[in-house]
Amino acid sequence: KELVLVLYDYQEKSPRELTVKKGDILTLLNSTNKDWWKIEVNGRQGFVPAAYLKKL
């Protein structure tokens, strides 16, 4: 499993997105899109802007 660090808080703006908090370490599911990465948070899957995340 690949992990990502959340660099900035992000509030979901659609049902396909997820809310994340700065400092969270989460599972990366897909990073093929350069702008939006798919991650998992508490069993939910969704997208967060790639600029808000850093691969560990």
Rank of each mutant, 00 (worst) to 15 (best):
L3K: 10
I39F: 02
L56A: 04
L7F: 03
R16T: 12
L56G: 02
L5K: 06
W36R: 04
L7Q: 04
W37I: 02
R44L: 12
L56P: 02
L56Q: 05
D35L: 13
K21W: 13
K38T: 09
K34L: 11
K21G: 06
Q45P: 07
K21L: 09
E2N: 13
G46L: 06
V20H: 02
K22F: 05
L7V: 08
R16V: 13
L28P: 00
R44W: 06
K55G: 04
Y8R: 13
V48D: 01
E40L: 07
W36D: 02
W37M: 03
P49L: 03
V6P: 00
L26I: 14
L5A: 05
R44H: 12
A50M: 04
V6R: 00
V4P: 00
V6H: 00
A51E: 13
K22T: 08
T32F: 10
R44Y: 08
L28K: 01
G43C: 08
I25V: 12
Y10E: 00
T27R: 11
E2V: 11
L18S: 05
Y52C: 09
Q45K: 09
T27K: 10
L26W: 12
L18W: 03
N33E: 10
L28T: 01
P49G: 02
L3D: 04
K54W: 10
K54G: 06
K34A: 13
Q45T: 14
R44D: 07
I25A: 02
A51Q: 13
V4D: 00
K1E: 14
P49D: 03
S14M: 08
Q11P: 05
L28Q: 01
I39Q: 00
G46S: 03
D9S: 08
L7A: 03
L3C: 09
G23M: 03
D24Q: 15
V48L: 08
L7S: 02
L18P: 01
K38E: 15
E12T: 10
F47W: 15
N30G: 08
L29E: 03
D35I: 12
Y10L: 01
Y52W: 07
K22C: 07
N42L: 11
E40V: 08
V48A: 05
P49F: 02
L7P: 00
G43D: 09
N42T: 07
Q45H: 11
R16G: 15
G46R: 02
S31G: 11
D24N: 07
T32Y: 11
R16M: 15
K1I: 14
K38N: 08
K54L: 14
W37R: 01
L53E: 00
L28F: 04
W37K: 01
R16H: 15
K22S: 09
Y8M: 12
L3M: 12
V41N: 13
L53G: 01
E40D: 06
G23I: 00
K34R: 09
N33Y: 08
D24G: 04
V41C: 12
T32N: 12
V48G: 01
Y52R: 05
L29C: 07
T32C: 11
T27E: 12
S31T: 11
G46W: 04
N33P: 04
L56T: 06
L56M: 13
K55H: 08
N30D: 15
I39L: 15
K13Q: 14
L3R: 09
V6W: 01
L29S: 03
K38S: 09
R44C: 07
T27H: 15
K55P: 11
V4S: 01
G23L: 02
R44V: 10
A51M: 12
Y52S: 10
L18N: 03
W37V: 02
R44M: 11
K55M: 14
W36V: 04
Q11G: 08
G43Y: 05
R16K: 13
N30L: 08
N30P: 03
E40H: 05
F47N: 04
V48K: 00
D9T: 06
S14V: 04
D9R: 02
T19Q: 05
L3A: 07
K21D: 04
T32R: 11
D9Y: 03
K34E: 13
L5H: 04
Q11L: 12
V6S: 02
F47S: 04
T19P: 04
V6F: 01
P15F: 10
E2T: 14
K55F: 07
T19V: 06
L28C: 08
E17F: 06
W37G: 01
P49V: 02
Y52I: 15
L56Y: 09
E12G: 15
L3Y: 12
I39V: 14
V4G: 02
R16Y: 14
G46C: 05
L18C: 10
Y8H: 15
G43Q: 07
G43H: 12
V41E: 12
V6I: 04
N30C: 10
R44P: 01
V4C: 09
A51T: 11
L29F: 04
E17P: 08
W37E: 00
K21P: 01
T32M: 12
K13G: 08
G23N: 06
L29P: 00
L29A: 05
D35P: 02
K55S: 09
V20R: 00
E17I: 04
T32P: 04
W37T: 02
E12M: 12
P49M: 03
K22R: 13
K22V: 07
E12N: 09
P49N: 03
L5Q: 07
K13M: 13
V20K: 00
L5R: 08
I39D: 00
D24C: 07
E17V: 04
E2Q: 13
R44Q: 13
G46N: 01
W36Y: 11
E40S: 08
N42K: 09
P49W: 02
A50P: 07
D9H: 05
N33V: 06
L28G: 01
Y52A: 14
K55W: 05
I39E: 00
D9M: 02
T19G: 06
D35Q: 10
W37H: 02
V41M: 13
K1Y: 15
E40A: 09
L3P: 03
K55A: 08
K54N: 07
E2G: 10
V6G: 01
D24S: 10
